[in-house]
């Protein structure tokens, strides 16, 4: 068990991040913090991908030798995913600004209630 924790700590970190992100999304009433929660959740997944690409004793992915090398594909994928994540955050924050303008609050519970009154 200790052994697993010692050698696979990055997986632990991944699931810690996923947990923190999920909790923030559900447990936090502030919608900005909810958005941050989504970001942390995604970061967990990014870490998972990058970690999976790591190989013991590998070289950087520049093919000069026959030696084993780090898989470059996950890096590229995550680069794309980060771009997607950034645009999502932008849209989300845009919506938050509009909601704040409209209702003057960022509290999720109040917002759902206001909605129900409409």
């Amino acid at each position: 068990m200790i052994d697993v924790i010692a050698t696979r700590y990055y997986y632990l970190a991944t699931f810690l991040l996923l947990g923190v992100g999920t909790y923030m999304m559900i447990g936090n009433r502030n919608i900005v913090k909810k958005v941050i929660g989504v970001n942390i959740f995604q970061t967990g997944i990014f870490l998972f991908f990058i970690a999976s690409a790591y190989l013991e004793g590998a070289n950087p992915p520049v093919l000069t030798t026959e030696a084993p090398h780090v898989s470059p594909l996950p890096h590229v994928l995550i680069l794309t995913a980060i771009v997607v994540g950034v645009s999502l955050t932008a849209v989300a924050l845009g919506l938050v600004v509009r909601i704040y303008d409209e209702y003057g609050t960022l509290d999720a519970d109040t917002l759902w209630e206001v909605r129900a009154d409409e």
Binding site: V38, F41, I99, E102, R115, E118
Partner: peptide, 16 residues
């Protein structure tokens, strides 16, 4: 504001 709130909710869950 209603559509914005709905969209944000959609965004949060959809992203997950």
């Amino acid at each position: 504001g209603r559509s914005a709130v709905a969209a944000l909710r959609y965004l949060l869950i959809g992203t997950v």
